[in-house]
Design a protein around this nucleic acid. Structure first.
Lengths: 111, 111
DNA sequence: TATAGTACTTGGCCATACATAGTACTTTTC
DNA sequence: GAAAAGTACTATGTATGGCCAAGTACTATA
């Protein structure tokens, strides 16, 4: 039980939420997502992102199309399905509630 | 991959943070914590809380003393150690950063 | 004594994030 | 045109924390 581990745990579920948000703004492929996450100081490695995308696709929240690239192998461009869009809406509620709950706990003054 | 599961994942690590905060405000035992969490709409079951307290104690972040009760078996009253207090400080930083990062992602307008 | 209530404990399950290694395709370099 | 470098995606195994469910132990009440 160290800090690093606690940080990993805190990210659980949030990554999924962030990824869905990024994709909701327009079609992107994995490297685009990594860039956005990195610029928001959320460091993610490929071994985390790709399996996550596969899970979301298998759950029916995402779909993709192959697009040829001029500088390497073809890319999978993702976008949200209707189902994915609804799911993102629910996740947003959950996240907002969680923030609010946590704030209640952490801002309460000493009894 | 359903909403309920996503909600469980989002809570990971946050519970630990909330518990430490509650204990930081004064000596409490498990039922006190459950009441506070419940009033902040964070529903936790015993099977989650007790193992968590044990982990935190074994990590040296908490210590407890037995206190007799007039309405049942004795209770473990917990308080933070110095180490636990420092750890809570670090967790707070981590949490604040995570909130900030997530906000960057979710409030960005469509490119 | 039997029942209900309170407090704490334990064992097994599952999903996610991560580390690591590997596949496949394209462009560049000699 | 073969080797090297770069890009994109895939696969496997590990660790952790939250949850369910059942169980122990003590006290008060009926």
């Amino acid at each position: 039980m160290n800090l690093e581990n606690a940080q990993v745990q805190m990210r659980k579920g949030i990554l999924e939420y962030c990824i869905l948000h990024i994709i909701s703004r327009g079609e992107v492929y994995a490297s685009d997502m990594l860039d956005e996450l990195t610029s928001a100081k959320i460091i993610v490695v490929e071994g985390t992102l790709y399996p996550l995308l596969t899970r979301l696709k298998n759950a029916g929240f995402l779909e993709y199309k192959w697009v040829e690239s001029k500088s390497g192998p073809p890319r999978k461009y993702y976008k949200l399905t209707d189902k994915g869009s609804k799911f993102l809406g629910r996740l947003t509620e959950t996240w907002d509630e969680l923030i609010h709950s946590t704030q209640m706990i952490t801002t309460k003054s000493n009894a």
